[in-house]
Amino acid sequence: MASQGTKRSYEQMETDGERQNATEIRASVGKMIDGIGRFYIQMCTELKLSDYEGRLIQNSLTIERMVLSAFDERRNKYLEEHPSAGKDPKKTGGPIYKRVDRKWMRELVLYDKEEIRRIWRQANNGDDATAGLTHMMIWHSNLNDTTYQRTRALVRTGMDPRMCSLMQGSTLPRRSGAAGAAVKGVGTMVMELIRMIKRGINDRNFWRGENGRKTRSAYERMCNILKGKFQTAAQRAMMDQVRESRNPGNAEIEDLIFLARSALILRGSVAHKSCLPACVYGPAVASGYDFEKEGYSLVGIDPFKLLQNSQVYSLIRPNENPAHKSQLVWMACNSAAFEDLRVLSFIRGTKVSPRGKLSTRGVQIASNENMDAMESSTLELRSRYWAIRTRSGGNTNQQRASAGQISVQPAFSVQRNLPFDKPTIMAAFTGNTEGRTSDMRAEIIRMMEGAKPEEMSFQGRGVFELSDERAANPIVPSFDMSNEGSYFFGDNAEEYDN
């Protein structure tokens, strides 16, 4: 993207840094990872977990959730003011799984939030270390993106479920800051804005008074975040219109849905970061690795190297396929839920299948599930090659597409044709070009129609051997075009429920 120079890199967003050079960025990201790792080690000690239990991804998720809940100030305040039966607002906890007599047992633990905050700050040299908290939120978000298709949420806001490739980060909490905003897809931002506008339509006082002023500035800020994701002048001009509207209503909703559809071809720039579970960072720190000293990046080879040398386990339900569970977590670790499966298959070195073909449910185990038949197995999170994460949407291309997802959002900077089903997408653009945004709409449609099938995206960008740390010898991959490109292809993934 041309304006790259004016933006802070995501590592800076990730670490609240002012302008830093590459070495400083690597050190501050490393410091953040160190903090998460030290916190995780301490929690495993508190909970008396064995090494194996500490490497269980379900335990990692519970521990991450506990610290996120302990620092969720708004919710904590709300819980104190609106006490609900049987919930102690000062405590947080969740299921911890232990191996007892050759069987997995679930144990519900409860801790004072104050105590968890103390352990977290102690692991982070006394700081609140917001960057580390956001990092864990993005890992949870990436896992949700890989596990669930947001059909219901899309339909509720009037969008087409086939636009799911635009929904990265749709389950990120509001408090995820600049680093969170960077990884949100165009569809996620559109959905947040539509929800806001709908509230304004239904509630006369939404934009009024002292609160209304705050609401208005939040609305304009979200519009600017979305505008910054678009790469064409016409899309940005249309966002200006939406932002400046005196009284946002149905016309703005129409414009936003139009823009979301246009992003299936004229893709937005959305950041991709490899955020790993805390149970990967903990053992690495415990083994003596100093992330701050060595430096770390979320968008280069580092996460690949770390996963190459990590042992992570997962509980497996009786009829689940461990290899499929591994694929789910591998995609989440690489922030690749909406990437082209052919690119992923090449990088991973084994075939990556669409969601609907995987015999696996989510990673988390519900409290009512029976533990008797639970097994555990090693997650295979290694890769054959590594590639640089991208934040450009890439230019655009036609490809055989599917009944489910009709476009992709690249996660890796790797040369390819970008699949999208042009006739299906263009069919949504018939007729409606009147109104105050008509010239911009016409211009956007013209650009979409001009998108050429034979153009290559990320020209000359390749993948790298894991021994090639400096990215000196790019390998331009070859793809098996007979395979499906979309992950949520004609899909039956479970729906995400809060």
Rank of each mutant, 00 (worst) to 15 (best):
R99Q: 07
L328K: 04
R102D: 04
A263M: 11
A493F: 06
W139L: 13
K77S: 12
S50V: 03
N397E: 00
R317T: 05
E81V: 15
T378W: 00
S376R: 01
W330E: 04
S3K: 01
S345H: 11
P303D: 10
D34N: 07
E114I: 08
E369Q: 07
F206C: 09
R236C: 04
A237H: 14
R246A: 07
L154P: 01
E320M: 08
K227M: 10
G54M: 06
Q399W: 06
T147W: 06
V280Q: 08
M159W: 03
T23K: 05
R162I: 10
L154K: 04
F39P: 10
T92I: 06
G212S: 08
A366C: 02
R208E: 11
I475P: 13
P283C: 10
A234H: 06
R416T: 07
K87V: 06
D255N: 13
R204I: 08
F338N: 12
D88M: 03
P419K: 10
F258N: 02
I301K: 12
T6S: 01
G185L: 04
N76W: 15
V29D: 12
Q241I: 11
T151D: 06
N205Q: 08
A442C: 10
N498F: 02
V343W: 00
S60I: 13
G200Q: 04
A373T: 12
P161I: 03
L56P: 09
D421Y: 09
P95V: 09
E64N: 07
C333K: 01
I425H: 00
P89T: 03
Y496D: 03
T437I: 05
Q241V: 02
F479V: 10
A401Q: 10
S376G: 15
M481L: 08
D372H: 11
E192R: 10
N247E: 02
F258D: 03
Q311P: 00
L341M: 09
E484S: 07
D72K: 04
G37A: 10
A411L: 04
E220V: 06
R55P: 09
N309T: 15
D340H: 13
E292P: 14
N250G: 11
C279H: 03
K452I: 12
G37E: 14
G37V: 13
R436G: 03
E115H: 12
K103E: 11
S245G: 15
W386Q: 10
E115P: 05
Q42Y: 08
G295Y: 11
F458G: 01
G187E: 06
S345R: 05
G485N: 02
E484N: 12
L381Q: 14
L315Q: 06
S377M: 15
K452A: 08
G431A: 10
R74S: 12
E192W: 09
E320H: 06
M374S: 06
G93I: 01
E73R: 06
Q122V: 15
T45L: 13
T157H: 01
A493Y: 13
T157N: 10
N144A: 13
K77G: 13
I33Y: 02
M196T: 10
K351T: 05
D302V: 05
D302R: 07
L68E: 05
R117N: 03
M1F: 11
Q20V: 00
D112T: 05
M222H: 07
M456K: 14
C223G: 10
I445C: 14
T350Q: 10
